[in-house]
């Protein structure tokens, strides 16, 4: 078994210390950071994602794997940046203005990072212009909006409208999610996608970011 397979296996078991140790070892063996990322960490997270999709494993397993992913990624990030290796994409996420719920948004952020995306988490109670300003200024291709109240859902439309009025439609895609949100709502407000849960949000964002590239 290669060290990259070991990294992937350790990640699937959520062994963060072990993954960090193996990544260090792989770097010492002069393996390229991007290879360790793609064939070790991301390969491991793909398996985790698939096992989660078919309910072989559950949310805690995925989050333990994500923590292990961070442990390895933390060591690789400076090297990837030095080598100019692009991430899977940049995504701005946050809970919309008036909404203080952040558990769902946090889970999406963790799973996105695990899938190799650079996540710009604006937190909760975020004003529409902040989403758009951050996406434009930092070159993000996707904005992810979370709302858990019907009273805060309309803010999602404000963000979509702002993206259009600033001429960013087509360059910056908007995905929405949260308990009261639906696919029909996403279509009604002109959002590009709807994520039923964290796992499906990551899949949709992967598609959106790919379409953007």
């Amino acid at each position: 078994m290669s060290i990259l397979s070991d990294i992937a296996a350790g990640l699937q078991k959520g062994e963060d210390d072990r993954v960090a140790e193996l990544v260090r070892q792989a770097l010492d063996e002069n393996r390229e950071a991007v290879t360790i990322l793609n064939e070790g960490l991301i390969a491991g997270m793909r398996v985790v994602g698939e096992q989660f999709r078919v309910r072989e494993i559950f949310l805690p397993d995925v989050l333990l794997a994500a923590r292990a992913m961070y442990a390895g990624l933390g060591l690789l990030k400076p090297l990837l940046a030095r080598d100019g290796i692009p991430t899977a994409g940049k995504v701005v996420i946050g809970s919309v203005q008036g909404d203080l719920h952040d558990i769902g948004k946090n889970l999406v952020g963790i799973m996105l990072a695990g899938a190799g995306f650079e996540v710009i988490d604006l937190g909760n109670d975020v004003a529409p212009h902040r989403f758009v300003d951050e996406a434009r200024d930092r070159g993000a291709s996707v904005i992810g909006l979370s709302a858990l109240l019907t009273t805060t859902m309309p803010v999602m439309k404000d963000v979509v409208d702002l993206v259009r009025s600033q001429g960013l439609h087509g360059k910056v895609r908007v995905i929405v999610g949260g308990a009261p949100v639906s696919d029909a709502w996403a279509r009604q407000i002109g959002a590009d996608a709807y994520g039923y849960d964290a796992a499906s949000a990551v899949e949709r964002i992967r598609t959106l970011a790919g379409a953007q590239a």
Binding site: G14, L59, P60, L63, L64, A66, R67, Y70, D102, I103, N106, L107, I110
Partner: peptide, 18 residues
């Protein structure tokens, strides 16, 4: 405590406490 766990990169524990 939930927010603290997320901040300390303990998402599984944070989500479970939630």
């Amino acid at each position: 405590r939930i927010r603290d766990l997320f901040a300390r990169n303990e998402p599984a524990h944070a989500a479970m406490l939630d």
